[in-house]
C-alpha cells in the first residue's frame, strides 16, 4: 500500500515534465519518419511491403525502436526523472516525508518503467495512425484490408523491453547519483554506441555479457540465437544494479 502511495506521488510529479512530453514526442519520431517516407516515396521496401504492408510497417518501426530509439529514450528518461528532484531541490522534502526509502526508490524505478511502456504503446498507436493515413494516401494497396500479426508485434516488443532492462537499471543508478544532467546522458550514449558497434561491427564474444550490447543482439545473425539467454542476463543485471543502486541511495549522506 505504501509503495502504491509513493508511486502515485511519483506519477503526479512527472505531470507536465519534459520526461512526459519527451515520451510522447519520442514515440512519434519513427511513425513520423515513416509517414514522410510514404508520402514522398510510397511504401518502404516495395516488395514485401506491398504484399504485407501493415506488418512490414510495424516490423520497420520495431527494428528502429529496438536498436536505437528505445535504448536512447531510456538513457534520457533515467536522467530526466531523477533530475526533477535535483532541479527543484526537493530531495530533502521527499526524504523527510513519511515514506520508506525503499518505497521512494522503487516508485521512481516503476515510474521509469511506466514511461517506457507508455513509449511503446504510444509508438504503436502512432504507427496505426500512419497505417490508416497510408490507406488513404496509397489507395491502390488497400492497406487496411491486409492482415495484422498482433502476437508477432507483441513478441518483438517484449524482446525490446527485456533486452533494455539492464541498461535501465544502470542508467537509473547513474541518474540518481548525478546532479549533473549531461554526465549520465554522455555515459549512456557512449556506452550504447560502444555496445552496438561491438555487436554489429566487431561481433565480439563479450557482447552477450555487456548490457549495452543487448538491444543490438537480436539484429546480429551470430548472436540472435542466444537472445533468450541474453534477456535473462539483462534481467539479472537489472536486479543486480537495482540492489547496488538502492544500497548507494541509502548510504549517501546528502542527496539534496
Amino acid at each position: 500500500m505504501s509503495l502504491i502511495i509513493s508511486f502515485r506521488s511519483e506519477i503526479l510529479k512527472s505531470k507536465r515534465t519534459a520526461a512526459f512530453y519527451f515520451t510522447l514526442i519520442g514515440a512519434a519520431v519513427i511513425p513520423f519518419i515513416l509517414l514522410i517516407n510514404i508520402i514522398a516515396d510510397g511504401l518502404p521496401g516495395e516488395g514485401r511491403a506491398s504484399k504485407d504492408p501493415i506488418n512490414a510497417m510495424f516490423k520497420l518501426s520495431s527494428d528502429m525502436t529496438g536498436l536505437a530509439l528505445f535504448p536512447l529514450f531510456i538513457v534520457l528518461i533515467c536522467t530526466l526523472l531523477p533530475q526533477i528532484e535535483f532541479k527543484n531541490s526537493t530531495w530533502k522534502q521527499v526524504l523527510t516525508s513519511p515514506q520508506k526509502k525503499e518505497d521512494v526508490f522503487v516508485a521512481k524505478f516503476l515510474n521509469i518503467h511506466l514511461l517506457m511502456i507508455l513509449f511503446l504503446v504510444a509508438s504503436h498507436l502512432f504507427i496505426w495512425v500512419v497505417v490508416i493515413a497510408s490507406h488513404f494516401i496509397l489507395p491502390q494497396f488497400n492497406i487496411l484490408n491486409h492482415s495484422f500479426d498482433a502476437s508477432k508485434v507483441l513478441q518483438e516488443n517484449v524482446h525490446t523491453y527485456l533486452s533494455c532492462l539492464g541498461i535501465c537499471a544502470v542508467q537509473f543508478w547513474i541518474g540518481l547519483r548525478s546532479r549533473n544532467f549531461i554526465v549520465p546522458i554522455a555515459i549512456g550514449l557512449t556506452l550504447w554506441l560502444f555496445g552496438t558497434v561491438l555487436v554489429l561491427e566487431y561481433h565480439s564474444s563479450a557482447s552477450p555479457y555487456f548490457p549495452y550490447c543487448f538491444p543490438a543482439i537480436r539484429f546480429s545473425s551470430l548472436f540472435s540465437p542466444r537472445l533468450n539467454q541474453v534477456e535473462w542476463t539483462s534481467f539479472g543485471y537489472s536486479f543486480l544494479f537495482l540492489v547496488i543502486g538502492f544500497i548507494d541511495f541509502r548510504r549517501r549522506r546528502k542527496l539534496k
Binding site: L12, K13, N88, S89, T90, Q93, S97, Q99
Partner: peptide, 20 residues
C-alpha cells in the same frame, strides 16, 4: 523552498497529500 516548479500550488500539495 522544496517545490516542483512545473506544478501549481495545489498540485504540489497533492504530491504529498496521500503520503501524509
Amino acid at each position: 523552498p522544496s517545490l516542483y516548479a512545473h506544478l501549481t500550488a495545489k498540485e504540489n500539495l497533492n504530491v504529498y497529500r496521500a503520503v501524509y
